[in-house]
Design a protein around this nucleic acid. Sequence first.
DNA 1: ATGGCTGGGCGCCCCAGA
Length: 258
Amino acid sequence: MKIATYNVNGVNGRLPVLLRWLESSAPDVVVLQELKAPDTRFPADAIADAGYQAVWHGQKSWNGVAILSRVGEIHETRRGLPNDPDPAQSRYIEAAVNGVLIGGLYLPNGNPRPGPKFDYKIAWFEALIAHADGLLASGLPVMLAGDFNVMPTELDVYKPERWTDDALFAPEIRAAYARLLDQGWTDALRKLHPGETIYTFWDYFRNAYTRNAGLRIDHLLLSPPLAARLVDAQVDREVRGWEKTSDHAPVWIELADK
DNA sequence: ATGGCTGGGCGCCCCAGA
C-alpha cells in the first residue's frame, strides 16, 4: 500500500496539478494539507472522478486537511485534535483506511518567534504529543503524516545557520519533534535514507527549487507495526518543477502487505 | 539582512505562508 502526504497550498487552485500527480504517482491513500477552502468548496466530484473517496475538514482561506483513498472506505475517527488550543483552525483529521489508522495533520507555522503564533505552535505540538501517546498505546498500525513545519535536524535544512531562530527550526521545536519520535515513532524517510539530503519544500522566492535551497518539513511517522512493513519512501520531487505547482512536493511510503 | 513569490479574499491591496 502506497500512502502519500501533500501540502497542496490551495486545493482548488492546485486541482490540475493534484489530478495529474494522482494519475502519475497512483498513491492508494493521500493526506492533503492547506486546502484553503471551506467544506462546501472541496472538489469532491473531480477527486471522485479520479477514483478517490475523500473525507475533509476545511476552513475558509486557510488551513484545511483531507484524507483520500482508492483502496476502500474511509472510516473517519476524529476531526480536530483533543484539547486543540484553537479548534477554529482545521489542522487535524484522522481515519482508518484499509487496516491503517492515519492522522493527517498541518502543524502551525509559528512565525514570528517569539510571539502568540509561536506560543500557539508549541501548544498545538503539546496537544499532538499527548494524542500521539494514546495512539501508540493502542498498539494499532498507526501513522501520523502531514506538514509538521519542523526541520528535525541540520541535515534537513539547506543552510541551518540561517534558520536557528526561526519557528521551524528553533531548539524548542526540534526538541518537541524529538520527544514525539522518542515515544516510539519511526520517521520513514529518514529511516530508509540516513545521512541523505532530502527536501520536501522549496520557497517560491529566489529560484529556491532550481538552487535546491529546500527544507524537509513534511513527514510520515510510523508506529512499530507499520515500521516493520516499511519497504520504500520517496519524495516526488519533480512535481515541484511543474507549472502552477505547490511550494511543497508530495512525499510517500510503500508498506508491505500484512 | 532583506526581499523575493503565490493563493485566497469580497478584491483594484492585504494577509499568511516558511
